[in-house]
Nucleic acid binder design. Structure first.
Lengths: 336, 336
DNA sequence: CTGAAAGCGCTTACAG
DNA sequence: CTGAAAGCGCTTACAG
């Protein structure tokens, strides 16, 4: 394997000139640069990663802390991982994957061995073990997700409060005045889970502000519970003409099956919007309008925010990505 | 951050003694070792990764080449990735994740920059672009999956031919003498896809050997195609009492729905076995007996085989993991 | 059982 | 615009 000395010899320059030519950290004469480029190409030279890490100030490696919980939805998780690994490459970074307990315990090792320049963390719990750790570690890091206490940390995620408002605004624009929200299972709210609560609170506040009749139901992921929740919406919201879903995929399927069974058409009888969904709603029958959880975007921002800290920007920020609305034909003007 | 010099000073020894104590590459006096251990603990010392890579012969990093195809089933893929990252840690290795085009193009970079000691590659196509590359690269590597031409390469995967035999043997032991195989969509076989073909051929050969009436159908992933395939099995195998599935999850669901619609009980009217499935068959209704695609095991073996090459074992092997049969109550003795 | 020292292949002041 | 040289923090012969 060729070293920088080989390149220098072939190009007839010093190794420092080769180094500077490659890093672009000082101006190099055109002729010199050409000779270096030719030598690099001829030898197939690539800087030794270890030497670079040791001599330089950067390792060009990021740690991706990605624990996988029992209830993690694999396709969404995959999308985050891919987005982050690809975004990292766009900035000439490689990604070391830390899974399971290493997602927590491996972080200290990454930092003290100086293997990585920064960290991107996924699957953030409300009381995540990595939150105090990252505060202590003092290394560029971004949480993709919002923990309970964000002080001193940089985080990025979908703006789910705006998403709740957006879902309602779209329905109201179509004339709907009575809208139900099917949320996550009740335990999640009691446990103080972050998103679901913020989405729900924002939904309720916006409904009040817009003068819309609304009700939130929080069924477990079982057909019977979904059925009961739907019946409750119908009985307590007599004019029910639209439903917003902020829940997992199985509940979507169960609801749609229930509606089919009841002979209720979507959107002819009921408009439906899926909000903050990490799965494609195209596959559902019928496909649902959706405000996607933009894993591609937030994952990439996670990388960018970590690298911007590396570049010296050290003020912690909580960045909320604006929601977007994707129509799939599951909403229609209210007909009375 | 403490360096080896700090540890040596605090312990009152030379840095080479610290290095040897930590690597265990030569015997150290008990008292000396204790002082070094104490100094390491006191300082929270961890060897600098870059220095280690540069001075030593190992980087303690593995590359995981994991392209994601459009038809990749995310949960299975996730399982492979987790198994590999965890197995690597068990041998004190970290894992650099290479996705999409980097899964191919990044490999050469990994090798020439000496970032990794070896490679584990997932999602192996019949004519995988990484196959010639890995042959050329001359670095410890293992393919988790079997390409068309395995010459010179180390590979590991489920023994799907044995899996086909196993599925049939279990059914025959229950008295079944007429067994259908629902395989993958026809294109896959025409395209020369590896597993499906080997499974099918082995299934047919075993059926002949056991004197079992059999038929293979290869429907597309659509309810109508699955229905037609099932009808064909019924009409061409009059005594049909069992079906082996070697196909994707959607086809499983479609078939079970079809049977429900027809009022056919599983296993009362029909025994069913899911073979080489990368998804849990517990979730299906009813749960199906399964010969799992053991991602945990083959993923881990991928790491072990790469590290054994690093340790000097250089003879390429194609290692086939024996299939196992997991009963879930979807098979029963034939009743006539 | 332990130490002094060379060297791994870079980056980056320092110098001109 | 370019070069000579120190130094990053280890590992590992070489020596005793």
């Amino acid at each position: 394997m060729a070293t920088i000395h080989d390149v220098a010899r072939v190009a007839g320059v010093s190794i420092s000139t080769v180094s500077y030519a490659l890093s672009g950290k000082r101006t190099i004469g055109a002729a010199t640069r050409d000779r270096i480029d030719a030598a690099v190409a001829e030898l197939g030279y690539r800087p030794n990663a270890g030497a670079r890490m040791l001599a330089g100030t950067r390792t060009n490696i990021l740690a991706l802390s990605a624990p996988l919980h029992a209830d993690t939805y694999a396709p969404a998780h995959m999308t985050f991982v891919l987005a982050i690994a690809e975004a990292a490459r766009d900035f000439d970074y490689d990604t070391v994957l830390l899974v399971q307990d290493e997602a927590v315990n491996g972080l200290r090792r990454m930092v003290s061995s100086k293997l990585v320049d920064g960290i991107v963390a996924l699957d953030i719990d409300h009381d995540d073990a990595r939150v105090p750790l990252l505060r202590e570690l003092d290394i560029p890091a971004t949480l993709v997700g919002i923990p309970g206490d964000t002080s001193g940390l940089t985080c990025v995620d979908l703006d789910f409060e705006a998403a709740a408002r957006l879902s309602l605004e779209r329905l109201v624009a179509l004339g709907h005045r009575s809208v139900g929200l099917i949320g996550h299972p009740d335990e999640l709210y009691e446990r103080g889970s972050n998103f679901p609560i913020r989405f729900r609170d924002s939904f309720e506040a916006e409904a009040t502000a817009l003068g819309v009749d609304s009700l939130v139901v929080t069924p477990d992921q079982e057909p019977a519970a979904v059925r009961a929740a739907f019946e409750r919406l119908r009985s307590e919201l007599p004019g029910l003409s639209a439903i917003v879903l902020n829940c997992n995929e199985p509940v979507h399927t169960m609801l749609l099956e229930l509606l089919r069974e009841k002979g209720l058409g979507v959107p002819s009888d009921l408009s439906i919007v899926s909000a903050c969904s990490s799965f494609p709603t195209d596959q559902l029958d019928p496909p649902l309008d959706v405000i996607p959880l933009p894993a591609q975007i937030t994952g990439r921002r996670g990388v960018e925010l970590t690298l911007s800290q590396l570049a010296g920007y050290t003020t912690p920020v909580v960045e909320l990505v604006a929601p977007s609305y994707v129509g799939k034909g599951s909403t229609a003007p209210v007909t009375t």
